[in-house]
Amino acid sequence: MCRWLAYSGSPILLESILYKPQHSLIDQSLHARLGPHTTNGDGFGVGWYGEGDEPALYKCVDPVWNDRNLKELSRQIRSRLMFAHIRASTGTPVQQTNCHPFRHGKWLWMHNGQIAGFAGVKRELVMAVDPALYGSIEGSSDTEVFFYLALTFGLAENPPAAVQRAVGFIERTCRAQGIEHPMRMSVAASDGESLWAFRYSSEGVPPSLFYSTDVQALREQHPEIEVFRTLSDESRMVVSEPLGELAGVWNEVPPSSWGRIREGQDQVGPFIPAAH
């Protein structure tokens, strides 16, 4: 599978979340603890919202621990909303167009998990993508098709409903081909204003996913840690696995749930695949 993190809050340098934590995403690329693969070396990508109308992307097919350019850039890139992803392919080729995050307009999307039996249902899934969006699909991965199905089903208008409709459609399509448990997923999506996270599995055991504790509470629990004093109360992270072992920092996202992080408007709800 893969490992990923998403951050929303006070503008910070990318290196502060990619390189500096005890169990950083760079460390997880070689020593992941909670995923099925210890090594996640099939490419990587980062996405961030800056000055433009659309988020910026940097992707590479090399293992992330080997990329000197990322280390240099991360010392200078500062953003209030960032995505980072390290890939362990589930079968599609190791190529730049298959690296996460995926972008369409102002949206970013990344995923840990898989659509089971994807090769056998790919044509039917792709044909359900809105024709106006179809030409924007660049790669061959199940994640990108999933993203464009969510866009087709209304991601811009109502993200939870759109992702639930996309998953419902994928499950029905796969089960019609005899695939009993089609979906395992932890997903992050953003339009630059809100950060959305989704955790679900067709068989009830989804990939791991955690969110960070309220910063105000962390200041009280750990007054000795300087970084907690510099972050706004609205700052949050969502991660595939904790970036360290400091007590009280990380909380598991419940299975079959979605969450939204936005200034003053955090929300949580149940994730139930919907009929198309």
Results as ranks from 00 to 15, higher is better:
168 G>F: 00
66 N>W: 00
67 D>V: 13
108 L>D: 06
91 G>F: 09
79 S>L: 05
61 V>N: 06
120 G>K: 10
95 Q>K: 12
91 G>Y: 08
17 I>M: 08
232 S>F: 02
177 Q>P: 00
129 V>F: 06
89 S>L: 07
213 T>N: 12
274 A>N: 00
60 C>Y: 03
232 S>Q: 10
248 G>M: 07
80 R>T: 11
52 G>D: 12
265 Q>D: 15
41 G>I: 04
68 R>G: 08
45 G>C: 09
37 H>L: 11
43 G>Q: 08
163 V>W: 01
69 N>M: 11
171 E>H: 00
56 A>V: 00
10 S>K: 13
212 S>D: 03
17 I>H: 06
227 V>C: 11
220 E>P: 01
254 P>A: 07
18 L>K: 04
7 Y>H: 02
101 P>T: 01
23 H>V: 09
118 F>Q: 05
16 S>P: 03
74 S>H: 02
108 L>P: 02
228 F>K: 02
210 F>Q: 07
178 G>H: 00
211 Y>S: 14
247 A>I: 07
148 Y>K: 02
160 P>H: 05
12 I>G: 06
230 T>H: 13
109 W>M: 05
193 E>R: 15
90 T>M: 06
248 G>I: 13
230 T>A: 11
239 V>T: 10
75 R>M: 11
149 L>A: 03
260 R>I: 10
11 P>G: 01
22 Q>C: 07
40 N>G: 09
269 G>M: 05
30 L>R: 14
204 G>Y: 01
106 K>L: 01
196 W>M: 00
146 F>S: 14
248 G>N: 09
38 T>K: 14
138 E>P: 00
177 Q>N: 09
168 G>V: 01
163 V>T: 01
132 A>S: 15
32 A>C: 11
225 I>P: 01
270 P>H: 06
228 F>N: 04
244 G>L: 00
30 L>Q: 13
145 V>G: 13
